[in-house]
């Protein structure tokens, strides 16, 4: 395992494929439209960061971010709470139809979104919840549940049975066991599920596109698309918006990279 400079040089060069586009995006936001169209490869001539404030206020990016945060936060909480509850019942408690119900929910792991969104759209129309945040929260929660239940089940199965039995002997009811014993032990699983559901909800596009027309309720992906159509020729403003959306996520990701990578890969592979 000797140090090998060629390896690191080659890998660093390859990393450029990832950095250059993102860097170009960030730098272009500091250039004028004229500079971008005439010489897209040049560096900005002036480092004027006011464009970010302009993009933020003109495009309502704050609004979109808040919407994304609300929708993601509620969906994720719902998935964690309801998913862990159901997984506990499926794994540790005997009851009628448990196999059948679990099998139905497991179906959700393989079904593509397109299998059901037409009728879901009609149903939401009928219920009058389109153009409300509920129209995103409901499906995002439902879409996150199968995986959450599946992952939580695997975690619970790995916990020693004796812990639960001992609690029983001490006279604790099942709900108490769930709350005081299971939840704390489930922490690593919760982190994985949380990352996976949160990122899926944060980035979801198709349902957000179909269900939300009201600009005040749009989430980041659709809001940004609206922004990019509206300012499609105001390049530096558009790049500034893209940068604003990207940078916080990259910072969060760099801080929590292990959890994020684990959460996303485990979520997908299970």
């Amino acid at each position: 395992m000797k140090r090998n400079p060629i390896f690191h040089i080659a890998m660093s060069l390859y990393s450029l494929i990832y950095f250059v586009p993102l860097l170009w995006m960030a730098l272009s936001s500091l250039k004028s439209n004229q500079e971008i169209t005439m010489d897209p490869l040049s560096l900005p001539t002036a480092w004027d960061f006011s464009v970010f404030a302009e993009a933020f206020s003109a495009g309502g990016l704050g609004k979109y971010a808040i919407n994304s945060a609300i929708v993601t936060g509620i969906s994720m909480s719902g998935v964690l709470l309801f998913g862990s509850m159901a997984a506990f019942a499926f794994t540790r408690l005997k009851f009628r139809f448990s196999k059948q119900i679990l099998a139905l929910i497991t179906l959700g792991l393989i079904l593509p979104l397109q299998s059901y969104f037409i009728a879901q759209n009609a149903l939401f129309d009928y219920l009058g919840i389109k153009d409300t945040r509920l129209a995103l929260i409901l499906p995002y929660t439902a879409m996150g549940l199968p995986l959450a239940i599946w992952l939580f089940r695997a975690y619970i199965q790995n916990l020693p049975k004796e812990i639960f039995e001992a609690a029983r002997v001490d006279g604790a009811g099942d709900l108490r066991v769930y709350q005081t014993i299971l939840l704390p032990m489930l922490k690593p699983g919760i982190a994985t599920v949380a990352v996976f559901t949160a990122l899926s909800a944060w980035n979801e596009f198709l349902l957000a596109l179909v269900y939300i027309q009201n600009d005040d309720l749009k989430t980041i992906p659709t809001g940004l698309l609206t922004f990019s159509t509206r300012y499609s020729t105001n390049y530096h403003l558009l790049f500034a918006a893209l940068t604003i959306v990207t940078v916080p996520m990259i910072i969060l990701y760099v801080i929590f990279n292990r959890k994020v990578i684990e959460g996303l890969t485990e979520g997908a592979v299970k």
Binding site: I129, L134, A135
Partner: peptide, 14 residues
Amino acid sequence: AVGLLGLAVLTGCS
């Protein structure tokens, strides 16, 4: 659970 649903309805419904 009630809190979650309530929140969802509150934030969602116009």
